[in-house]
């Protein structure tokens, strides 16, 4: 069936099986391999995408559910810019090790900062609690989200 949606800011349509998992569709048909699969059952968060700004798990969504939605993947997060402040902060603060969780973590953090631009460390941990990381022990990820929040606040102040 034909499914129409907005993918990383661009109107898109694709003809595909309605029960295709969104993760497979985006990775295989659109080549968006920044979306990872760590479990396929909702437990790890590596397959996170933003659906109308909310972090959701693309391993538990079927293609039809994309209809009319606006989807952001890690590849589209920076938009016109070279890097989103979260991406910059993840590198600078050492939040990336193997990096397999990073795209999902960054998108989950993006969803948090949209809703709560000045989160506490506890709130950050809670917001990232659906994204497992086996490498970092999370601390530097929390540092990075804090740093990005500050950077984004500054940007906003500058912009007036």
């Amino acid at each position: 069936m034909i499914i129409r949606f907005v993918l990383n800011g661009e109107e898109t349509q694709i003809d595909c099986a309605p029960d295709r998992r969104v993760i497979d569709l985006l990775r295989e048909d659109f080549g968006l391999t920044g979306i990872k699969e760590g479990c396929g059952s909702g437990e790890c968060g590596t397959c996170t995408i933003l659906v109308d700004g909310e972090n959701r798990l693309s391993c538990l969504m079927l293609a039809v559910q994309l209809e009319g939605k606006s989807i952001t993947t890690i590849e589209g997060l920076a938009g016109e810019n070279r890097q989103h402040p979260l991406q910059e902060a993840f590198i600078r603060c050492g939040a990336v090790q193997c990096g397999y969780c990073s795209p999902g973590m960054i998108l989950a953090a993006r969803a948090l900062l949209t809703e709560n631009p000045e989160p506490t460390r506890e709130q950050i941990r809670e917001a990232l609690s659906g994204n497992l990381c086996r490498c970092t022990g999370y601390q530097k990820i929390v540092d990075a989200v804090e740093a990005a929040a500050r950077a984004m606040q500054k940007q906003k102040e500058k912009a007036g």
Partner: peptide, 22 residues
């Protein structure tokens, strides 16, 4: 503390792990 050589490609989703080869 220089940032990771592989950091940029990993946070942008560009890094191709074995899983990402089709």
């Amino acid at each position: 503390s220089i940032p990771r050589a592989d950091g940029e490609a990993k946070v942008s989703g560009e890094e191709k792990y074995a899983t990402d080869h089709y």
